[in-house]
């Protein structure tokens, strides 16, 4: 991480803290947006390998439900334990689904992910006794080391964002991370270098599921409730578009994309609930047709112009 990028991150963090201090409402919105950003980062990892998941809500929701079950069954209220439960349940689910789904590409990968998430959606809705059906389940007000954290959740989310972003930055610079881009352009060569493409995708899928679960658990704790809607494809759509809008090319991209999108969603839910999907659709068209690199591509544009002039 060098120069301008590091500075950008520091500014971002400072801005987030300032906004959060200004009002509890803003800190709630930011917490949810950043939590979704973590999940979008997971989607972006898959995009890097040329795979588009239309069902990442599965892990986002699994994170939320994992935390809710820990609270419901064992009466746990400790924030870190709840987070751990969410992260773990999504990762384990990711290991299972990933083992099957990394064999598929293109639209098959997209739709099978969607189908997996929708199977869970319909089961969670129907198995009322086990899941609370469409009413969902409540989460307790979390404690941290016995203390009521208040705004602590926001700072914990921010910390998660920085730890994950930093870790992912290094992961993407490793041979494995570079291998993801290689999968997108030429799988056969990668196999002929002695690398198992599906093995690499499997590891990547599990990481992406874990990120989804972490984000889902954070958001669920912030909201204090989980419902089957979390599994629904519209959630997946938001995660995917946050990633695409921000751009899979950088670690910061999905967070930027999700902040923007969550802002639009909040505005839409207040003023024009029937325009939210349309707004997402327009984002999708804009990204696909005009700025394939997303917001992080726009950040890099001046550099590209400079290069073009030279």
């Amino acid at each position: 991480m060098k120069g301008p990028r590091a500075l950008l991150w520091v500014c971002l963090a400072a801005a987030a803290v300032a906004v959060a201090l200004a009002s509890p409402w803003a800190s709630f919105i930011l917490t949810v947006a950043l939590a979704k950003g973590l999940a979008a980062l997971g989607v972006a990892l898959l995009l890097r390998a040329g795979l588009m998941s239309l069902g990442h809500a599965l892990f986002y929701a699994a994170g939320g439900y994992g935390a809710a079950y820990l609270a419901r069954w064992l009466g746990v209220t400790d924030l870190l334990l709840l987070l751990g439960a969410g992260f773990l349940s999504a990762t384990v689910l990711g290991l299972f689904t990933g083992a099957v789904l990394v064999r598929y590409r293109a639209i098959f990968f997209a739709m099978l992910n969607l189908a997996a998430s929708m199977v869970f959606f319909s089961l969670v809705t129907k198995l009322y006794n086990l899941t609370g059906g469409s009413d969902g389940m409540p989460l307790p007000v979390p404690t941290m080391f016995g203390l009521k954290p208040g705004q602590g959740l926001f700072y914990l989310t921010l910390a998660c964002v920085f730890v994950c972003a930093g870790g992912l930055r290094r992961y993407l610079d490793s041979a494995m991370g570079q291998g993801l881009g290689a999968i997108a352009t030429n799988e056969i060569r990668l196999e002929y270098l002695g690398i198992s493409v599906n093995g690499l995708l499997f590891v990547n899928y599990a990481i992406s599921a874990g990120l989804g679960g972490l984000g889902g658990a954070l958001a669920a704790i912030a909201i204090g409730h989980v419902t089957p809607e979390l599994f629904f494809w519209t959630t997946s759509a938001q995660l995917l578009l946050g990633a695409a809008l921000g751009g899979a090319g950088s670690v910061a991209g999905p967070f930027a994309g999700m902040l923007l999108l969550e802002g639009v969603r909040t505005a839409a839910s207040q003023y024009a609930p029937l325009l939210w999907e349309m707004a997402m659709g327009l984002c999708a068209l804009a990204v696909a047709l005009f700025v394939p690199q997303g917001l992080s591509g726009i950040v890099d544009l001046p550099q590209q112009w400079k290069r073009a002039v030279q």
Binding site: R170, D173, S174, A175, G177, Q178, I188, L193
Partner: peptide, 30 residues
């Protein structure tokens, strides 16, 4: 059969890493 979006050096770095030590998630390819 090349990785079209990578530079030539990155193509070869991937080959060099593939020979040994590819599966280290936090060690830089460069």
């Amino acid at each position: 059969q090349l990785f079209a979006e990578h530079t030539v050096l990155e193509n070869l770095l991937l080959a060099a890493a593939a020979r040994r030590g590819f599966w280290r998630p936090f060690s830089a390819i460069s």
